[in-house]
Design a protein around this nucleic acid. Structure first.
Length: 420
DNA sequence: TCTGGGGTCCTAGGACCC
DNA sequence: TCTGGGGTCCTAGGACCC
C-alpha cells in the first residue's frame, strides 16, 4: 500500500503557525512580486478567491472580507517543509518527497499486520505535534489511487478525520465515481476537455475506455494512469535525482527599459543558476537567456526572444556563466521596448566528475577554488555578500514583497520573542 | 499600475546513417 | 506505372505536475 501525505493549505498553514490569531481568518499567500494568489486557507476558498487570482483585481475583496494577505516566504515554507518530511520519514523507510508539501510513503507488507487507518491517524497526530501543520493522508494500492484517497480525506474531514484508505474494489469504484475526470492526477485541462466531449465525466468513466484509445490520445503516460486507476501498480517511488534543467527567471517590479538594467538582472540570474549547479555538483553545457515585454499590455509594443548557446566547455563558474549570459543577452536585446521579464536557463547538465575535457579551451580551473571560497563566505555571513561587479551591489532584493512575514524559524533575529 | 516560478516526460517528424 | 529496408539521434512542442 502507498500513502500520500499532503499538507492542508500548506503556505497558509505555515503563516498561521506563528500567528495563531489567523486561525479562523481567511488567509491568502501571493506569488513573487505579490502578483497572484498561490495558496488559500479554507475560509478564503469559501469566499470564492480562485487559485491564481491577480492580487490587484481582488484587492477590494481582500479588504472587504478582512482577508489576511501575505507575500511568499520561502525561507519559512522550505524550513517547515523539511521538518514535516523529517517527521514523516520516521514512519517508513520508503519515502518519496514529491513536492514542498507532499510525500509518498510505501508500506510494503504492513497491511497484513497493521491497521493502516490507525497509522494514518498517528501520522496526523505526530506531524501536528512536531510541526503544527495539519495534513491529510490517503492510502491505496498505488500512487494514483493514493492521490484519490487523499482528495477524499481532505474533502470530507468530518467523516474521515482527514485519513482515508481505499482498500477494496467497492471503495475504489465509489471513489472514482465521485471524482471528476479533470481532478485526476495526470489529467490536465486539455485532456479533461477532450474527455468531457466524449461524455467521460468521472474518473470511473475514464477507466471504461479502451487501452488503445488512451494510448493513442494520451500517450503511455495516460495508459499507465488508466491501469493504476483500475488497481494495478505501474508507478513506483522515485529517487531524488539531479536536475536536468535549472532556471532562474523573474518578472520585474516595474518595466525595464535599458540594456544595463536588464543586464544586471540577467547576470544575477546566471549567478543563481551557477550556485544551483554547484550545489548539485554539476556543470551546464548549454545556456539560454530570454527576455520579454508585458504580455498583459497588448497596447504596448510586444517583443519576445530567446537565445540558446552551446557553451564551449562545461562550467558552473559565476564568472563564465555571466560572460556567456551577457553575450546571449546582447544577441537578443533591442532598444525601445519596456521589458517585464527575463530569465536564464541552464541545460544539458552533466556531473562535475564526468565532464568531457577538451584539448584546448576548458573552463578556467582556478575558478573552482574561487567559487568554493565565494560559496563559503556567502554561507557563513549571509546570502550573496560576495558578488560580481556586474551585479547591483546595493540591491539584495528587488521583488515586491510588501506583506512578507518574518523568517521565524531560520533567522535568530526574526524569531518570536516571548515576554517573561 | 498591477497578472509567479520551476520543473518533468513523451511524441512526431526531420535529418542522418548503412 | 513502377523507385528498399532498417535503424538512430535530435528537437520543438505539447502535455502534465507542484
Amino acid at each position: 500500500m502507498f500513502a500520500l501525505i499532503d499538507c492542508n493549505n500548506f503556505y497558509a498553514s505555515c503563516e498561521r503557525l506563528f500567528q495563531p490569531k489567523l486561525r479562523n481568518l481567511p488567509v491568502v499567500i501571493l506569488s513573487n512580486n505579490d502578483g497572484c494568489v498561490i495558496s488559500r486557507s479554507n475560509e478564503a476558498k469559501k469566499l470564492g478567491i480562485p487559485m491564481g487570482a491577480p492580487a490587484f483585481e481582488f484587492a477590494h475583496i481582500f479588504e472587504k472580507e478582512n482577508i489576511q494577505v501575505f507575500s511568499s516566504n520561502y525561507a519559512l515554507y522550505g524550513d517547515i517543509s523539511s521538518r514535516v518530511m523529517a517527521t514523516l520519514s520516521t514512519f517508513c523507510p520508503d519515502m518519496e518527497v514529491y513536492s514542498i508539501d507532499e510525500a509518498f510513503l510505501k508500506f510494503e507488507g504492513y497491511d497484513k499486520h497493521f491497521n493502516l487507518s490507525e497509522i494514518g491517524k498517528q501520522i496526523r497526530y505526530k506531524v501536528t505535534r512536531d510541526t503544527g501543520i495539519p495534513v491529510s493522508v490517503g492510502f491505496a494500492p498505488n500512487k494514483s489511487l493514493a492521490k484519490v484517497a487523499n482528495k477524499i480525506a481532505k474533502k470530507f474531514p468530518d467523516k474521515t478525520g482527514n485519513v482515508y484508505c481505499i482498500n477494496s474494489d467497492e471503495k475504489r469504484i465509489k471513489a472514482l465515481q465521485w471524482l471528476s475526470v479533470g481532478d485526476v492526477w495526470g489529467i490536465g485541462a486539455q485532456h479533461a476537455k477532450q474527455l468531457k466531449k466524449l461524455n467521460v465525466n468521472t474518473a470511473y468513466d475514464f477507466t471504461l475506455l479502451e487501452d488503445a484509445w488512451v494510448k493513442k490520445n494520451m500517450s503511455i503516460v495516460g495508459l499507465r494512469l488508466l491501469h493504476e486507476l483500475k488497481g494495478n501498480v505501474c508507478l513506483d517511488l522515485e529517487m531524488p535525482a539531479n536536475k536536468q534543467n535549472i532556471a532562474t527567471t523573474r518578472s520585474f517590479e516595474k518595466n525595464y527599459t535599458t540594456f544595463d538594467m536588464i543586464r544586471e538582472r540577467v547576470v544575477t540570474f546566471a549567478v543563481t543558476c551557477a550556485e544551483k549547479l554547484r550545489r548539485q555538483q554539476s556543470c551546464a553545457n548549454t545556456l539560454m537567456v530570454f527576455i520579454h515585454t508585458n504580455r498583459f499590455r497588448p497596447d504596448l509594443p510586444q517583443y519576445s526572444r530567446n537565445f540558446v548557446m552551446e557553451l564551449p566547455y562545461p562550467t558552473n563558474s559565476n564568472i563564465e556563466l555571466c560572460k556567456f549570459a551577457t553575450f546571449a543577452l546582447e544577441k537578443i536585446y533591442r532598444n525601445g521596448f519596456a521589458y517585464k521579464k527575463a530569465g536564464v536557463i541552464v541545460m544539458n547538465i552533466t556531473p562535475v566528475m564526468e565532464q568531457q575535457i577538451h584539448l584546448f579551451g576548458n573552463s578556467n580551473s582556478r575558478h573552482k577554488k574561487l567559487m568554493e571560497a565565494v560559496d563559503g563566505i556567502n554561507k557563513d555571513i549571509g546570502h550573496i555578500k560576495v558578488k560580481l561587479a556586474a551585479q547591483d551591489l546595493n540591491c539584495t532584493w528587488k521583488m515586491k514583497q510588501e506583506k512578507l512575514s518574518p523568517r521565524y524559524s531560520t533567522r535568530i533575529s526574526e524569531a518570536i520573542k516571548v515576554k517573561a
